[in-house]
Amino acid sequence: MTAYRLPKDPYNIIITGVGGQGNVMASRVFSNMLVQKGFFVTIGETFGASQRGGSVMSHIRVSSKSTWSPQVPKGKADVVVTLEPIEAIRVLAGYGNPAVKVLTNTRAIYPAGVIAGRLSYPSLDEIKETLKKLSARAWFIDATDEAVKLGNAILGNIIMIGALSAVGDLPVGRGDFEAALSRTLPAEKMADNLTAFDLGVELMKQ
């Protein structure tokens, strides 16, 4: 299949967020980028009822050898990409470990209990402190805010995919993204997505 040596096999990515943020799309696109490179990829995801404002999670297992379980075993995430900041904390409690890398979109989506005043939401500083403590490396990216500037908040997921590709553990880049996306996306939407992807790569340099 592929000659590329993964830092770990299987290499485990978790993409998390809130229903409606484009979590599934992000995991699909990124996985297709990897499949094009010859990897076995297994994605496990929850959607359906959990889509309705609940936490959603995609587990991506990347291997040069075989298909793995659609659920990552506890403590075995290598990188966590989160479209909503506190969801990263939730995922790390299940799948984190001292070596994990975390990429966090900084835009909060408040849970119903927070909006209602029954629960409280931590400050961004508190979230950053927690994620830094629970990871080997943490990046904070204003993906939604940047996407709003691009004219469509949903592109936040693509910005995060760009950022993920810039972590450097996996041999994928812009060309793979373009190829993977063109399988499913109409041509007129490509430009915006490519801009978002590039922006994600760019933001990781800062």
């Binding site: 809130v18 404002g53 609940g54 969801e87 939730r90 409690a93 849970p111 209990g113 409280s120 508190e126």
Partner: peptide, 8 residues
């Protein structure tokens, strides 16, 4: 720091 996110 991770308030529960109920379905809505």
């Amino acid at each position: 720091r991770a308030p529960n996110r109920e379905q809505v």
